[in-house]
């Protein structure tokens, strides 16, 4: 009001003219800024979305390729091992029909039995590699213990594991996914790290399950993992990522503070059963 009273009529036109122009410019500037800012944000969001889609696509491809590889391996096992074994057993039995000598007959039957036993064992091994019976019957802890005992038993590496808080079993599908992830990680350590030991620990904190793997070989860090995940190589790692995504879990690769060990930490929230995809 003071301003209004002090302005005289000659000064009014200038204030009014420049004031109106100024306000108009400010308002239009504000609207233009909002439009451009929002366009920029949308473009950025779309870019992020596109990147996410690309990664999803890569994970899906990795998963399909892995499935195909698994099928090929089973097909090769059946074709190269079970097929010839059964063919040989058939040969022995055919020979048995022609040959009437009792001793040779018994020998052939014994040989055929041996071969059939081998075939049964082979098929059992294939079946166990598809779904470990220990995992199904006794749970994740026993299956991981079993796996580590086998590795230790081979004498090539010292493998140990300890589950600190696993009184309540997870859902079977969740256990299978976690087991596959551990298998893949251990497999990678065996293949690439040249480590002399692997140690696995399990802990429960709040609503989250933590599984940590330590090894003293060559490992990768989170930056390497992210890089490999974005590239076309690292099929196993992509598979780990896609499996963990089903559980809403996360994985961290890091080097120990002492720079001696590599650590891999898997974080899995305890989720409702319905949220897990049925086709694991």
């Amino acid at each position: 009001m003071i301003f209004l009273q002090t302005v005289n009529t000659t000064g009014v036109s200038g204030v009014l003219f420049f004031g109106t122009i100024g306000m108009l410019v400010l308002t239009i500037g504000l609207i233009v800024f909002i439009i451009f800012h929002q366009r920029k944000v949308i473009r950025y969001q779309m870019q992020l979305q596109h990147m996410e889609q690309e990664q999803q696509k890569m994970l899906l491809n990795a998963s399909i390729r892995l499935q195909e590889e698994e099928r090929q391996r089973i097909a090769a096992d059946l074709h190269d091992d079970a097929g010839p074994l059964l063919a040989t057993a058939r040969l022995y039995l055919n020979e048995n029909l022609v040959n009437l000598d009792k001793t040779t007959q018994l020998q052939s039957i014994y040989n055929a039995k041996q071969i059939i036993d081998d075939t049964i064992q082979l098929i059992r091994n294939i079946s166990h590699s598809l779904m470990p019976p220990t995992l199904k019957n006794f749970g994740l802890e026993s299956a991981v213990n079993d796996l580590f005992q086998k590795i230790s038993g081979s004498g090539s590496m010292n493998a140990s594991c300890r589950f600190h808080d696993y009184r309540e079993r997870l859902h079977a599908d969740q256990e299978l996914i976690i087991f596959r992830v551990i298998q893949e990680l251990v497999n990678n350590i065996l293949k690439h790290s040249n480590a002399s030991f692997i140690h696995l620990t399990q802990n429960l904190s709040g609503n989250k399950l933590y599984i940590r793997l330590h090894h003293d070989g060559r490992g990768i860090t989170q930056a390497d993992f992210d890089k490999l995940n974005k590239s076309n190589v690292g099929l196993g790692l992509k598979n780990i990522q896609s499996r963990l995504k089903l559980l809403h879990g996360r994985i961290y690769f890091e080097k120990d503070i002492s720079q001696t060990y590599y650590k891999v930490t898997i974080e899995i929230p305890r989720i409702e059963e319905e949220t897990i995809a049925p086709q694991i």
């Binding site: 209004l4 302005v7 009014v12 204030v15 009014l16 004031g19 109106t20 306000m23 308002t27």
Partner: peptide, 8 residues
């Protein structure tokens, strides 16, 4: 745009 006009 009418701010200064109405003010004065």
């Amino acid at each position: 745009s009418t701010f200064f006009l109405f003010m004065q």
